[in-house]
Each structure stands twice: as structure tokens, then as C-alpha cells.
């Protein structure tokens, strides 16, 4: 039973509960950790549950997702509800479009709160408990490692016809003739010591970028993804199987979860 249910279930005990040590048991490090996040502080004031965010949320139209619900759970500061949220698919449904932000009459920003929740979920390994959360391995290995290797979150090689079939046959043609097509378009790729699209960023600049990623906690966050996945799937080998399956089939659900 969560604190919230306890309180709701027995209103006579409301004040006595607060007067006892129970409150300290429930005052978790997780909630405190969340409240330390500057993005949470900026994104979460007080929610009056008006629904203005959910009304225009693209994710709320296709998923069992509601930004208002997320704000509400955070607002309770209930540890168990928070853990359930961090383990669920919900926090990964947000498309980060920020449609919720300009409308909120209390100046909240659920999209920002979501980012704080996701980082918390990754740091504590909860992300690996949900199907959508486990996609974080791909995010880490594509966006994250691309940045460290090339200085870009995405590279031309990522937009494969297999993973982006909607781009059609002309894209397949382009993909087969990538270098020539880019030159034809006057946007040659992988040039060294030169400005331009998809250039090779000089090594001294890449070094600076990697130092920044290390000093500011990005490396740690990325490592937490690998660790969390290893813990959930049982071994590094299974993590590689999970990855290989996705690269080959473009669908993480084809990997059979053992538990």
C-alpha cells in the first residue's frame, strides 16, 4: 500500500500518519533525487489538473499516455508510484514536441519533467524493465556513440532503407549511390579539414567534445544504459544479441525476453 492509499483509505489517521516516522520511510532518495534535477525544478511547479497538456499531446492520441497523469504522479511524491512510473513504458511515449509547454497555465513543462524522469530511470536501471525503455540501448549506441565517434548524433549511414522503408525506392537508390549523389547535389561527404555537411571533424575538436561528455556526466549516463541492460538480460552476450536482433530486424520485440 502506498502512502497515498494509506492516507485516502483511513482519513481519521491522516494527521497521525504524518506525525509518525512513517513519513520518513516514504521520503525516499528517489523523489529527492528527482527534485534535485534543475529541469524538474523548472518544469514542475504545481499542477492543477486542467488537462490543457493532454488535450494537445500527440502521444496521448496514440498511446496510453497522459502528460497530466505523469505530472500528477510526480506531484504526489509517492515513492512506489514513482518507481512504477520509472519502470513503465509511459515515460518513453513522449515525443518531446513540447506542445504541452506553451499552454500550461501554471508554467509547467511536462516534456522537461519527462527528461528528468528518463534520466532517473536510466541511472537506477528501471528503464530496462519496460519494452520502450529498453530501446534506450539503441539511443545510446546510435545518438550517443555517434557523438563520441563522429561529433554528430546521426550519420548518413544510419538512415538505412531497412530501418526507414517509408523513404521509398528513390532513397534506396540514393543509399546505394550515397557518395556520388551527395557530390551531384554539391554536398560532398566525409571531407577532412574542411567545413561542410557530414565532414570529418578534426581529432583535436573531437577530443574536446569527448572531454566535455566525460566531465558533464553523459558518459556515465550512457554506461548506465549498458549496465542496466546487462543486468536485465543476464549478460553482455545477451545485450549484443538484443542489439544484433534490432540491427537485423529493426524490431526489438523480435528478441525474446526471458523474464
Amino acid at each position: 500500500m502506498t502512502l497515498f492509499e494509506t492516507v485516502l483509505g483511513d482519513s481519521d489517521n491522516y494527521f497521525s500518519i504524518f506525525n509518525t516516522a512513517i513519513i520518513f520511510i516514504y521520503m525516499s532518495k528517489l523523489v529527492d533525487e528527482l527534485k534535485q534535477d534543475i529541469q524538474y525544478q523548472h518544469g514542475m511547479n504545481a499542477c492543477l489538473n486542467c488537462g490543457i497538456c493532454t488535450a494537445v499531446c500527440p502521444a496521448a492520441e496514440v498511446y496510453d499516455y497522459s502528460p497530466r497523469e505523469v505530472m500528477n504522479i510526480c506531484q504526489t511524491e509517492d515513492e512506489e508510484w514513482l518507481i512504477d512510473l520509472l519502470k513503465s513504458d509511459k515515460i518513453w511515449f513522449c515525443g518531446q514536441c513540447y506542445s504541452c509547454k506553451p499552454r500550461c497555465p501554471r508554467g509547467n513543462s511536462t516534456a522537461d519533467v519527462i527528461l528528468a524522469l528518463r534520466r532517473l530511470s536510466v541511472r537506477h536501471g528501471y528503464f530496462a524493465e519496460s519494452e520502450k525503455g529498453r530501446q534506450q540501448l539503441f539511443a545510446k549506441r546510435v545518438f550517443g556513440e555517434n557523438m563520441l565517434k563522429r561529433g554528430y548524433t546521426l550519420t548518413a549511414e544510419n538512415i538505412t532503407p531497412e530501418h526507414f522503408p517509408e523513404l521509398g525506392e528513390n532513397w534506396e537508390y540514393y543509399f546505394e549511390h550515397m557518395k556520388e549523389m551527395r557530390e551531384w547535389w554539391d554536398v560532398p561527404m566525409d571531407k577532412e579539414n574542411s567545413a561542410g555537411s557530414h565532414r570529418i571533424i578534426p581529432e583535436k575538436d573531437m577530443d574536446e567534445l569527448r572531454k566535455i561528455y566525460k566531465a558533464t556526466g553523459a558518459m556515465e549516463l550512457m554506461e548506465a544504459v549498458e549496465k542496466g541492460m546487462e543486468k536485465k538480460l543476464g549478460s553482455k552476450k545477451e545485450v549484443e544479441k538484443f542489439w544484433d536482433n534490432w540491427v537485423e530486424t529493426a524490431d526489438s520485440r523480435n528478441y525474446e525476453m526471458k523474464h
Partner: peptide, 27 residues
Amino acid sequence: REAAGHTSCGAIGYHGDVTTIETQMVV
């Protein structure tokens, strides 16, 4: 003008949850 040594802002990684707000600031 553009410098060969400028990098991506990394925000796809930020909204894709692999970097921190601190990373984004310094980049």
C-alpha cells in the same frame, strides 16, 4: 562561415536521453 571543428549540438541525444543538461550547456 562555419568552422570545421564545430560539432552537433547533441540535442537529438538530449531529447533521446543519452546526455545531460550540463553536457548540452558546455557543448
